[in-house]
Design a protein around this nucleic acid. Structure first.
Lengths: 226, 226
DNA sequence: ACCTGAACACCGTTCAAGT
DNA sequence: ACCTGAACACCGTTCAAGT
């Protein structure tokens, strides 16, 4: 089926839509990483100029948010099997969310500043509210709790995943580890004394503890009490 | 005192040092914001070419970390007056840390990925360890707790301060608020039902609750228990 | 009315070549 | 040995001018 009235012999250039743009962005990201998903490269992949994208996407941040929402849609982060304890399921949902962000640290950085507002992100909120509700967390604590749970996971992903991918970030992290290990006893006595504890634990152990801390804190902390 | 053998009549160009570079960077940031503190502009302010900076600073991330460490040094985030309850003092230290980052959201974003490792950041770790110790938090919980406290404050600053400064980020946040407020009862029933709670609370109330949640969680959660 | 070429105003980082 | 000019390889966003 030849394109009618096409001026070039190139393959049919599909009409631009927001959906199409985001799909192409996700594909590009999976091939080359988010850092390479720039407005210019994305336009190139869509066989148009960068200016054209601004008809459908307000800016880079909004594009990133749209990408994340699309990825969340794929992941199916539902409430899970009621036979499994709610804490375990909630942990799994957060782990699924983090997994997406770990695969693309730059996306986590973006998500922290420009929160997605798409249907799948709302779905994630809904799932977390359901699980906290099931755990007997009062409505207000649950609502505020969802916020800090997601913030914590997003931050952990932004921080942690950079370690593996970005060589510069890895060096910065190593610098901190060494600074802690070699802290002077006279100026930083507690850091020195607790250096082993500060540097201990696998990422998985730290993660598990972090989620437990948040859930326990959310459960026992009544807003307005302080 | 004329510069000896100077080829130009310009004011004496001070020799480049890491200290001098970071000082100039802080000054430039306070005048124009971190976004404008680029390697090129910083070099210009130091009357040299961008390449020269790379003799003293490995990359932009390291520069940002050095800036933050310098700002922490100014802030004097000590353990405070022993007459005041430790929780109150710990809250104040975190507030001081957040205040620095709130004034420059981009710095918070950087700090999440490239943690500073300078003496003043170590000082902050030391202070937090001291306060948690004073509160009777066991050593391992304190060490891991410092990590999530700082991560949470950094993330909050990165997220929140963007709302005020960046017009784009503010719009994204508004989009999320509206999406929550208008959530469809059939697809996102809990978001709909708890929309009021999700959107409630002042930033200060949310912040206070967040710190309480973390402290309570850190106090009651034993690593390895889960 | 819709789309976009071309321009504006920048970036970080490297390295060969200078002093 | 130390420093840096100039280049490489890019950016996001806007808007006047086209169809």
């Amino acid at each position: 089926m030849p394109t009618p009235r096409s001026r070039r012999e190139r393959p049919a250039k599909p009409a631009l839509t927001r959906e199409g743009i985001v799909d192409t962005a996700v594909a590009l990201m999976e091939e080359e990483g988010l850092r390479r998903v720039t407005m210019r490269r994305l336009a190139q992949a869509l066989d148009t100029g960068p200016a054209s994208l601004y008809v459908y996407v307000a800016n880079t941040g909004e594009l990133h948010a749209a990408i994340l929402d699309r990825l969340l849609g794929r992941a199916d982060l539902g409430v899970g099997d009621a036979a499994v304890p709610w804490r375990t399921r909630l942990d799994a949902v957060l782990a699924g969310y983090e997994e997406i962000l770990f695969a693309n640290p730059a996306l986590a950085q973006s998500a922290l500043v420009a929160r997605p507002s798409g249907p799948h992100y709302l779905g994630l909120l809904d799932t977390l509210l359901a699980l906290l509700g099931e755990g007997g967390v009062p409505a207000l604590q649950a609502a505020w709790g969802v916020d800090i749970l997601l913030q914590s996971s997003t931050a952990a992903a932004a921080e942690h995943s950079a370690r593996g991918e970005d060589a510069d970030a890895a060096r910065d992290w190593d610098r901190l580890r060494r600074a802690v290990a070699e802290a002077a006893p006279d100026t930083h006595p507690r850091v020195r004394a607790q250096a082993a504890e500060l540097l201990s634990g696998t990422p998985a152990e730290r993660r598990r503890w972090r989620v437990e801390v948040l859930l326990n804190g959310i459960l026992v902390t009544h807003p307005g009490a302080a």
